[in-house]
Amino acid sequence: MTDPLVEIKDLRIHFFTDEGVVRAVEGIDLNIKPGKTLCVVGESGSGKSVMALSLLQIIHKPGQIVDGQILYHRGRVAGGQFSQNGAVDIASLNRKGRDIRSIRGAEIAMIFQEPMTSLSPMYTVGNQVMETIRLHEKGISKKEARERAIDILRRVRIPKPERLIDEYPFRLSGGMRQRVMIAMALSCTPSLLIADEPTTALDVTTQAQILDLMLELQQEFNMAIMFITHDLGVVAEIADDVAVMYLGNVVEYSDVDTIFNAPEHPYTQALLRSIPKISATRQPLDMIEGMVPSPFRRPGGCPFHPRCTQALASCSTVVPSLTTLHENHIVRCLLHEETGEEVPRG
């Protein structure tokens, strides 16, 4: 097994609102491997986006990382070498400090769902791509930055980048805007790219183009991708590993083949059964009863137990711990606690 690039350990993120505490992330343990694609799937309210934001320390008030570690092994690339810097605990860094600012955007970059709202309408595409480059590479001249920007736009397959660099974002289509976002994210060759639903707002054919592009660039730049999505079709296409989240927990983690062909957690199983299949006829869909509970009323015990068809009596009281079924397959469910062995905390 390769050493992880990022190790998330027992991460807890709570939002202290007037109506009460929302436990958006409630004890996540997760590893991101260098050069690989980790897909994080979950429904709305599962905490997947909040977890992603915490990797960059950009969680807004009243949200707060209350516990846990995010160990980022700086300079660990797919080859497996360590740099002299060693590990940084992102969770403990000051949000506005120099350390996180040198990581944010340069080593860990992020692209967002809606490419129109994440690009400024007031600046040209070139301004925005060059800003990232000039911020992180001191002493680079304006001319050099512009050349770098044109080069990176060409690498995300934008036609005629010399012309497009002086356009404003409103002139671009959704797919082109998302390419610009990707170009900005890649301009400093990050070791981890976090993509939060980057293709959800795009059409299917454009989505296919962007996914292909991201995988090609991953090879070229040798970076890890953490891909957040609710679309299992996308997961099946691009993931190496998959983490399934439900109400602030990772309920199952494994390689993509195991998740789709031998899932063990009842939620993963139900989720896979509930999606319409291209080959199937008009049978009623298997569905998960009920709905994702309100974040203020997080069920006790296993958070999935009110909707789980295989729930035991103890599921409503006992919080299941992480159980390793075999290498690279971890599940958080009481049904498997006797068979597997508990993951040692550390």
């Binding site: 296919a208 079709g233 996308v234 296409e237 789709f260 062909n261």
Partner: peptide, 23 residues
């Protein structure tokens, strides 16, 4: 051809047609 394949074991079956240009 842009319909996602729901089984990672069948990824290789995908012969995606890349449309050039914009709508």
């Amino acid at each position: 051809s842009a319909v996602p394949i729901l089984n990672p074991r069948q990824r290789h079956l995908q012969k995606r047609i890349r449309l050039e240009g914009e709508v």
